[in-house]
Design a protein around this nucleic acid. Structure first.
Lengths: 117, 117
DNA sequence: TCTATATTTCCACATATTTGGAATTATGGA
DNA sequence: TCCATAATTCCAAATATGTGGAAATATAGA
C-alpha cells in the first residue's frame, strides 16, 4: 500500500464518529448494516452519516450494496489489513527485539484460535 | 485503551509529514534520532517539525530525551501496540472467519522470526 | 561571560474538516 | 400514478489544522 492511501485510511479513522461507525461495522460482521440503522444506533443525522460513510468508503475501509430502499454498509477487512501491515512494515530493520511488542500485540488481538492461519 | 486516545493516535499519524516522521523513527530503532537530524532527513523546517513531534508525543507515539544540545526522539513501540490492539479488538465476535485476514496480516508483518513471542 | 548551535514557543494566515438544513434522487407499495 | 421511506447531494457556517517567520530558551565551548 502507498503512503497516500495509508494517510487516507488513518484520516478516515481519526475522528470520533467515523471511528465509531467503523467499529460498529466491524462488530456487525460481513452482513453489514443499513445506513439508517447505523444512524439510529449512533445518533447521527442521516446526511452527516452519509458524508462519513463516503469518507470511509473512499478510503477503502467499507463497502456498500443496495438492498431495496436501504444501502447496506460493511467493513472492508482487507482494507483494514492493508493498513495494519503498512503500519507494522518497518518495525524491525534487523532488530527483532524492537518489534516484539508489536508482534505480541498482534497475536493477542488474533483472539479466535481458528483464525491463526 | 480508550477511544479518545485511539482517535488522538490516529490523528497524529493521519498526516503526510507526521507519518513520515513516525516511520523514520520506527526505522531508526530504540536509539532514536535528534530533531535536527529528522528535519534534515525529511526537509521540514525545525519549528514545523517541533510542532509535529509535539503532536506525536502527546498522542503517546514517541518519547524524547535531551542529549547535550540535542533532543533525541524515538518511536514508542508500546503506544503503537496499544493502537493496533484497539483496532483489532472487535474483529471477531464469535466469527473466526472474519478476522482471518487481519490475523494473517499480523503474522505476515511479524517479519523477524525471533519476535514471534 | 560571549558566541554558536539546537530546539521550542508565539503568532497569524491559509487551508481543510465537520456539521446540519434544505432540496434531490431512488425504491417499494397502494 | 401518488405517497412514504431511505439515503444522498448541495451549500454554508463554525471549527480545527498545518505551516513558517521571528523571537525566545537551553546547552556547550572558548
Amino acid at each position: 500500500m502507498e503512503t497516500t492511501d495509508a494517510v487516507k485510511r488513518l484520516s478516515a479513522l481519526a475522528q470520533d464518529s467515523r471511528l465509531a461507525v467503523f467499529r460498529l461495522l466491524v462488530r456487525a460482521g460481513p452482513e453489514g448494516m443499513a445506513a439508517g440503522e447505523i444512524a439510529r444506533a449512533l445518533e447521527i443525522t442521516p446526511n452527516t452519516l452519509s458524508a462519513q460513510l463516503t469518507v470511509l468508503a473512499n478510503a477503502g475501509l467499507t463497502t456498500s450494496r443496495r438492498d431495496g430502499r436501504s444501502i447496506i454498509h460493511a467493513a472492508d477487512y482487507e482494507g483494514m489489513s492493508g493498513l495494519l501491515v503498512y503500519l507494522m512494515e518497518d518495525c524491525c530493520q534487523g532488530r527483532p527485539e524492537v518489534c516484539a511488542p508489536l508482534a505480541e500485540a498482534a497475536s493477542r488481538a488474533a483472539c479466535c484460535e481458528g483464525a491463526q492461519a
